[in-house]
């Protein structure tokens, strides 16, 4: 399949999923109500569609695209199909930032949690960018990322441990599970800027990711400014992952699974994989959020829970199929 055709099909899938996701929800609407919503946006059904569901769907698409693009970039940079944004420790530090903000009683301030999460992600991103400029080996980044993740996880646990109020603990937990409910257009606008910069950096690094197919040394001798491209890839995916966690909490598996869904169609090319991965991530997260909303559960399911519940078995299946093809 040509890259353009693949992207076009994914875009169609995204639009279709988004239309379904805006149409369906917890409160079913009648045909007359749909008609009213379309003709009169400020009516009650219009309110449901355009100010409750639409921003939520847009946010899911934005976060899914960010995670998918960050995942594809990380996999290309680390030359490892198991890499995802969380590998660098960015998600964990963003979670820590949010936990600190909530435990510190800043939850009432609009944007405070998001800012704290983004600050945490950027701090981790800066550390990893420094390491990426210094060390060429992907293993080094993975090891430091694992250490950073574990450390941030331990500090988040410490926040739980020392938190005097169970309410704060519950709030942090709920936030860490990831969700895009009750988002409005202001939230989306806040997330767009860091995501756009992150996406730009990742797409700029694309040719470097493709060259890395040959290994570190051949890439270094290729004439491409590999040091700069490497830093762009790390900074870009850190920004994307950080902005995603800031906007929607910690959502697993999308960054890992989205590139795998389109890998074969993109002929395994880490550069051609980037935009399709973003689109696939958006489709996945919009669909997952729709599932979370329409599933008849007493408590609405958290988005991070849904992606993990569905994502983990699907990912195991993909890994199984990939392992079979590697063996042959």
């Amino acid at each position: 399949m040509s890259p353009r055709r693949l992207e076009f099909l994914l875009l169609l899938a995204l639009i279709a999923t988004a239309i379904v996701a805006v149409s369906l929800g917890e409160s079913p609407l009648s045909a007359a109500q749909y008609h009213q919503a379309l003709t009169d946006p400020v009516s009650a059904p219009g309110e449901v569609l355009w100010t409750i569901r639409l921003p939520r769907v847009l946010m899911a698409a934005l976060v899914g695209a960010g995670l998918g693009l960050a995942g594809a970039t990380m996999q290309g940079l680390l030359r490892n199909p198991l890499a995802e944004p969380g590998v660098l420790g960015v998600s964990a530090t963003a979670g820590l930032g949010a936990a600190l903000a909530i435990a510190g009683g800043l939850a009432a301030l609009p944007g405070a949690i998001e800012a704290a999460a983004l600050a945490g992600a950027l701090l981790a991103g800066a550390v990893v960018v420094g390491l990426a400029a210094r060390f060429r080996e992907p293993e080094v980044l993975i090891l430091f990322g694992v250490a950073l993740s574990a450390f941030a996880g331990a500090l988040t646990a410490l926040v739980f441990n020392l938190s005097p109020s169970p309410v704060a603990v519950a709030e942090v937990l709920a936030w860490l599970m990831g969700s895009v409910e009750n988002r409005d257009f202001t939230d989306i606008l806040r997330a767009v800027a860091p995501m756009a910069i992150g996406a730009g950096l990742c797409l700029y690094a694309a040719r470097g990711l493709r060259m890395l197919t040959l290994g570190e040394e051949a890439a270094q001798m290729s004439g491409l400014p590999m040091a700069r491209l490497r830093v762009a890839a790390v900074a870009g995916s850190a920004l994307l992952a950080g902005a995603s966690v800031a906007a929607a909490g910690v959502i697993g598996f999308v960054g890992l699974a989205a590139p795998h869904l389109v890998r074969a169609a993109a002929r395994d090319d880490p550069a051609r994989l980037l935009r399709p991965s973003a689109l696939a991530g958006a489709v996945l997260l919009v669909a997952a959020d729709l599932a979370a909303r329409v599933m008849p559960t007493e408590q609405e399911l958290k988005l991070g829970v849904v992606t993990a519940l569905f994502g983990a078995p699907v990912f195991a299946l993909l890994a199984w199929r990939a392992a079979r093809s590697w063996r042959s």
Binding site: R79, R210, L212, T213, L214, G215, E217, R267, D268, P270
Partner: peptide, 11 residues
Amino acid sequence: LPQERRLAWNL
């Protein structure tokens, strides 16, 4: 042309 011939992806 480095000695290492391992390629990361199936391009």
